[in-house]
């Protein structure tokens, strides 16, 4: 019988940079949803149809996450929280998928078609949250880049540009707060 100790144990290295980039993108997405709820009437209407108390977690399996809480007429991004009790959870299967998605190399629809994610909770609510995330992404990215993230790029209007400015201001203030 061979000596087992010569076969070394391997602990794979952490994907620190990809994790941090994904974490930052999730932060912006969370702040984008918060801003969209306050400033985009369609998003407010959509989210108001969710239960009064509702939590949505977008997470990477064993990785970074972001949580949105809805309480009555308030929608708040609350950062990285324990996802266990979220009413609805969208889980990306690993950090590589998440990184590709966050950097626009896989669009959100493609992530769904590729089975790179799974959902815990009411699928009807998930469809609604996908539309909300699309609207939030429309606030975060210029139209030129947006086509890499969502199926249909909305028309660029003055209102969109003002909302984009608000989203970036909120995110920047939130980041240093």
């Amino acid at each position: 019988m061979g000596n087992a100790t010569i076969y070394r144990e391997i602990e794979p290295s952490e994907k620190w940079l990809k994790t941090q980039i994904t974490r930052l993108c999730l932060y912006f997405l969370g702040m984008g949803i918060e801003t969209a709820y306050k400033n985009v009437p369609e998003v407010k209407k959509e989210m108001d149809s969710l239960p009064d108390t509702f939590s949505f977690c977008f997470t990477v399996l064993n990785g970074p996450s972001m949580m949105i809480l809805k309480n009555g007429n308030r929608v708040k991004y609350v950062g990285e929280k324990e996802s266990y009790h979220a009413d609805l959870e969208l889980v990306l299967k690993n950090i590589e998928f998440a990184y590709l998605m966050m950097t626009g190399r896989i669009s959100t629809p493609d992530a769904i078609y590729h089975n790179r994610q799974f959902v815990r909770g009411n699928l009807g609510h998930m469809m609604l949250m996908i539309r909300v995330m699309n609207a939030a992404q429309a606030l975060l990215f210029p139209n030129l880049l947006l086509r890499f993230y969502i199926k249909k790029v909305p028309r660029l209007t003055m209102r969109t540009m003002i909302n984009r400015a608000k989203a970036y201001t909120n995110a920047t203030i939130g980041f240093f707060a």
Partner: peptide
């Protein structure tokens, strides 16, 4: 229909 899971698998929005 917009909240049905199948809508996510339409090739267009």
């Amino acid at each position: 229909a917009l909240n049905d899971g199948a809508i996510a698998f339409c090739p267009v929005e």
